[in-house]
Every structure is written in C-alpha cells, then in structure tokens.
Amino acid sequence: MEIEERAGLYIYSDTQLDKEEGERIEALKASSQQPLPDPDRWLDEELRRHILLTSVDAVLNWARRSSLWPVVCFPACCAFEFITTAASRFDISRFGMEVIRGSPRQADLMITAGTLTWKMAPQVRRIYDQMAEPKWVIAMGACAISGGIFASSYSVVPGYSRIIPVDVYVPGCPPRPEALLYGIKLMQDKIAKRSIITEV
C-alpha cells in the first residue's frame, strides 16, 4: 500500500510555515541567553509609599489577590500535580482560583507547570504577552526554575526566567500540591505589597 501524494492536499505550504517557526525559535533563543530579572520593585516600596493611597492600595490588592485566574500552560509532568491541586481533594477554589482559563486574555496568573523547550518558548512568550496587566508568574517545579534534570539537554530552556519574568519559584520534581498552595500564598502576600504609585 502506498501513501498518496500529500503535497497537493495542502492549500498552505507546510515547509514555509515550518521554516518561519524555526526562524522565530532561533531569534528568541539568540535574544534570551541571559535570565530576565525577577520583578522585585516592591522590596523598597515601603519607602516610597504615599500615605493617602494606602487604603486604595489595600482594596485594590485585596481584590487582585483574592481571585487570581490562572491560564493554561501545562507542558509536562507538573501539570498533573496542578490538576490534582485544582481537583476536589486539595481544592484550589479555597483561594478563589478555581476558574482556569483557556484564554490568556482572561487570566492574570501563569503557573508554568513543566519543562520548557526552545520549540515551545515562543508560544509561552506569546501567551504571556497576551495576558492583561497586572500579571504574575509562578514557576512550578525544578524544570521551570532551572531546567531540572534536563538542564544539560540541547533542546531545553534552562528556566522560564529566560523567557518571562518570574515572581515565585516553587521547588520540587514535581512539587506536592501543598507546596504549590504555599507558593500561591506567597504570591498573594507579594501582591498585597504592591502600590499603584510604582506602577508605570
């Protein structure tokens, strides 16, 4: 049995699409050889905080941290610990997070659950860019922090911080659901310290 000729079936040129994708990956790889700095402006915020705005900050931050909506970014193993965290036993909805969005435009938190490869990196960057401000990132698991046991591989990005700024790192391979919940609590504490003054 012979496979029929495929070339005529496509109305697009798949080789052209592949080539363009390859160029995007190489460009991103070349431009992200150094990790991005972690967002830590809030550390010296105490000094600059305007007295009149504290209660506005408190209300805004309370609203922001109490209903974080995570976006789907589930490349690998950690995804199943995240799904278990969201399911009935660990019940992420206790933190107002049960709405997991398939569309990045409706989300404000990215939980990066899994190994990132250079081929996937442009897509993750695009998902991050599509999320509306303000937005935060939790790097879940060893692969997301540094590449984990795959760090020396030819196709793996050594940590999401090469592509997107990361707020909270949750170690483990994979982290237990309790560890992830603790990471989320840290994320909420961090959001509570934001001030609208420092936002540009």
């Binding site: 000729e5 592949d18 994708e21 390859g22 250079w118």
Partner: peptide, 22 residues
C-alpha cells in the same frame, strides 16, 4: 518517504543530536 522533514526539532536546528559526535 512521502513527508521526510524534521519532526521533533525545529527547522534551522544545526546538527543531529543522537550522533555520537554531537
């Protein structure tokens, strides 16, 4: 092969990783 092109790596990747000299 009717559709011989790279499958897991991207277009433009240099070298063949599973070769012993890579």
């Amino acid at each position: 092969h009717p559709n011989l092109k790279r499958i897991v790596l991207w277009d433009g990747f240099t070298g063949y990783p599973l070769r012993k000299d890579y």
